[in-house]
Design a protein around this nucleic acid. Structure first.
Length: 426
DNA sequence: TCTGGGGTCCTAGGACCC
DNA sequence: TCTGGGGTCCTAGGACCC
């Protein structure tokens, strides 16, 4: 059996861990740039606030109802996430945990007797809550897809135990009958529409379609796997722990529209610096770097998401590198080349790809002084910036005043990852 | 005024090879 | 008159996820 452990309103829960006064109060967390709502507590939901809605559209309702509002604080969420995952690993063993996202993990429970699954699910939930202060829901089923179905029902039906185990034919059937295809893990909006056109509405109905049918109408092997999983046959396997990323991106909306080349270059240099840090953290080097900018659409036109208005460029590096300054150079050239005077920009980003282990970097004939010194410099720089505060040491190209920086009006302290922001105890 | 920031997997098609 | 048959690698684009 497989279980999915999912933190409830994770970012909101994180904010509450150090603000117990917010228990049972409505809370929302905003995306970067305070752009839209990305986490809502049940209480806020009950007041009619929805996920993914632009903040400015609901600002009035939020203020009127006294909903507590936070800018996202990824240092805090990342740290609490690690604690939750560590707890799960302590409970079932590291090899049985697949960290799926910042607030979710799949567990392999094949070693637990079927009769004990109910109790064990509750133990998981209680232990995580006790050790970390974060509340979780646990869904269990024969396959990952069925575990997801169970987990969704826990939340939808507000089951008091916050756990649901689909351990019998009957339980599974009932669960599938009350799940719409659009709510299945792996069925997005496009496929949901298509399925409805075929007059398939519930997961139960989908389960009885043939694999061949799914192969031709539901994205090839993806559809076939879905049918298998619904029928209790494992087709989506547990992934090994945290393989390295194959692509690393840092992209941001600007706080306010940017018009000057200087600002674009500063932003791109800053994003390149961030991306290079992520690259070094997983001991990789990049062989390709790409930069994009998105001009702001004139008022009234559909938002930037809908079109291909982004302008991008990429450069292949002479040899893979993880050194910030070697990445900034081509990034600056591309930023300059992409910039048009008179245009206003709403967003820019940097993507590193063609990642290889940094141990495999070939030394190049043209490498004058050997990269080892450089890599030690990077290591030192990363250590200082991580342990002190953000960017004590930085590249001049990244700019000092950062006019373009995102808005973050409501960020809580980084309670657990900065010495100077630890919570006080009287 | 104002709408996030990451990622993954799969497929088709082109280029190239023997 | 009438086009080989496989392979592999790479990239772009679609779909999905949190």
């Amino acid at each position: 059996m497989k279980a999915i452990v999912d933190c409830n309103s994770f970012y909101c829960s994180c904010e509450r861990v150090f603000r117990p006064d917010l228990e049972n109060k409505p809370v929302v967390v905003l995306s970067n740039n305070d752009g839209c709502i990305i986490s809502i507590s049940n209480e806020a939901k009950a007041l009619g606030i929805d996920m993914a809605v632009p903040y400015f559209q609901v600002r009035e309702a939020i203020e009127k109802n006294g909903i507590e509002t936070f800018s996202s604080n990824y240092n805090l969420y990342g740290d609490l996430s690690r604690r939750v995952m560590d707890t799960l690993k302590a409970l079932v063993g590291e090899a049985r945990v697949e960290v799926y996202s910042v607030d979710e993990a799949f567990l392999d429970l094949d070693h637990i007797a079927k009769n004990d699954l109910q109790d064990f699910s509750r133990t998981i939930r209680e232990t995580v809550e006790q050790w970390t202060g974060v509340s979780v829901s646990v869904g269990t089923g024969e396959t990952k897809v069925l575990a997801k179905v169970a987990n969704r029902l826990v939340k939808k039906l507000r089951l008091p135990s916050k756990t649901l185990v689909l351990d019998s034919e009957d339980a599974t059937t009932q669960a599938l009958q009350r799940t719409l295809v659009k709510d299945l893990w792996g069925i997005g909006r496009r496929y949901a529409v298509k399925l409805n056109e075929w007059n398939i509405h519930t997961a139960w109905e989908l389960k009885h379609m043939s694999e061949d049918w799914a192969r031709t109408h539901l994205g090839g092997v993806i559809g076939a796997r879905m049918i298998e999983e619904l029928n209790g046959r494992q087709a989506i396997l547990m992934q090994d722990e945290l393989a390295n990323k194959k692509m690393i991106a840092t992209t941001r909306m600007f706080g306010t529209a940017v018009t000057e080349l200087k600002d674009i270059k500063e932003a791109v240099a800053t994003y390149t610096t961030r991306a290079a840090e992520k690259l070094r953290r997983q001991h990789s080097a990049a062989s390709m770097i790409s930069v994009f900018v998105i001009p702001r659409q004139p008022a009234g036109t559909p938002s930037y998401r809908q079109g291909g208005q982004a302008r991008s460029s990429y450069a292949t590096l002479h040899s893979p590198t993880s050194l910030t300054h070697e990445l900034i150079k081509p990034a600056m050239e591309m930023a300059t080349q992409l910039y048009r005077k008179g245009e206003r920009y709403s967003k820019a980003g940097v993507t590193l790809s063609g990642l290889v282990p940094d141990s495999s970097i070939q030394s190049s004939l043209f490498n004058e002084c050997g990269n080892n010194q450089n890599r030690e410099l990077m290591l030192m720089l990363d250590n200082i910036n991580f342990s002190m505060r953000n960017d004590v040491i930085k590249y001049a190209a990244a700019g000092i005043d950062k006019q373009w920086k995102m808005r973050q009006e409501f960020r809580s302290p980084r309670y657990t990852s900065r010495w100077d922001e630890l919570p006080g105890v009287r």
